[in-house]
């Protein structure tokens, strides 16, 4: 009835996908860690993309160079953008490096070396977290924000530019700008600073309540912004940011906090695993894959930091 019928059947081609085989040649534990990392990467990217979207919809986004310019013990006037965060990045790269050595030692079932390098990694992570703690507190403690808040900023036409903002956030339109701080006490020191540092960009006149700036020539708003950023050090919190858009500091604390939380949980995992390695828990299993999985997670934390570093500190 049908010529295509045949009694013999050619055996199916076998490939790594034909079942009974691990097609990627990876244990499922490691694979699950990878997929977790992939999904966590999406979470981070959710944050960083939100950052990018908000940033590019604001003209007054602060320049990170003026925000992250301090260094521990160097005082408020130290001005070296990226130096500290570069150091932090260096520390994280070092800890990533020690971790990869620990994983390799684990493969060779050298438990002493594994523990040693894991402890080094944990140290690196801890130092990184401390650095982050310094950076956070450094940003938060500056001049008390309430002292520098300006209730209303108008241009000479009386148009409101911003409500309740610190000096540095004043938007510049063409023409003359009046800055009205709500406390007269502040005007004096700030006014002095302005007259001192405004250079040749503006003519400055101050009275008890107002500072009036008149641009000379074709000064650009950005130059003016930068002048303010350079001139003063303020503290920023989750909701206030003297350097410009408050969203900047909100996102900064949120994203570095989320990353820091990952570092912290990574540390907890590493401590537990190091302890298990030390107790030869994995020796009986015949392999140290747990170290490798923890290592994957740790490197992921490093990998994400690379992106956080770029988005927050580098891109202007």
């Amino acid at each position: 009835m049908d010529t295509t019928l045949s009694t013999s059947h050619a055996p199916a081609k076998t490939s790594v996908w034909s079942g009974g085989v691990r097609p990627f040649n990876i244990s499922y534990g490691k694979m699950m860690m990878w997929f977790f990392i992939l999904s966590d990467f999406f979470t981070f990217m959710g944050f960083l993309f939100a950052y990018t979207a908000l940033k590019s919809s604001h003209p007054d986004w602060p320049n990170p160079d003026y925000v992250f310019k301090g260094f521990p013990l160097m005082g408020h006037h130290f001005n070296a953008p990226l130096l500290f965060v570069g150091t932090m990045t260096f520390i994280l790269i070092v800890s990533s490096f020690t971790m990869v050595i620990a994983v390799d030692a684990g493969h060779r079932r050298d438990y002493k070396k594994t523990v040693k390098y894991m402890i080094l990694t944990i140290l690196g992570g801890a130092v990184f977290l401390s650095c982050q703690a310094w950076e956070w507190s450094h940003l938060i403690h500056g001049v008390k924000l309430s002292d520098t808040t300006v209730k209303m900023i108008k241009d000479t036409n009386g148009n409101m530019l911003r409500k309740e903002v610190p000096y540095a956030m004043v938007k510049l339109t063409d023409g003359i700008i009046t800055v009205t701080p709500h406390t007269a006490i502040l005007v004096k020191p700030l006014g002095e600073k302005i007259t001192e540092e405004a250079g040749k960009a503006f003519t400055v006149s101050t009275n008890a309540t107002d500072i009036t700036l008149t641009p000379i020539g074709n000064n650009k708003p950005s130059a003016w912004m930068e002048f303010f950023n350079e001139g003063m050090t303020f503290g920023s919190t989750l909701t206030h940011n003297p350097f410009g858009q408050p969203l900047f500091s909100s996102l900064f604390f949120l994203v570095t906090g989320f990353h820091g939380f990952h570092v912290f949980s990574g540390l907890v995992i590493l401590v537990i695993i190091a302890f298990n390695v030390y107790n030869k828990r994995y020796e009986s299993r015949g392999h140290y894959e747990m170290v490798e999985k923890a290592g994957l997670y740790w490197h992921f934390v490093d990998l994400v930091w690379v992106f956080v570093f770029t988005f927050f500190y580098l891109l202007k």
């Binding site: 097609p23 990627f24 990876i26 990533s96 490096f97 971790m99 990869v100 994957l296 490197h299």
Partner: peptide, 15 residues
């Protein structure tokens, strides 16, 4: 980082 530290280069292309 992914390729060397996380050994991704050693995995199969499909992965």
């Amino acid at each position: 980082i992914a390729g060397t530290f996380m050994h991704l280069k050693d995995e199969t292309k499909q992965f």
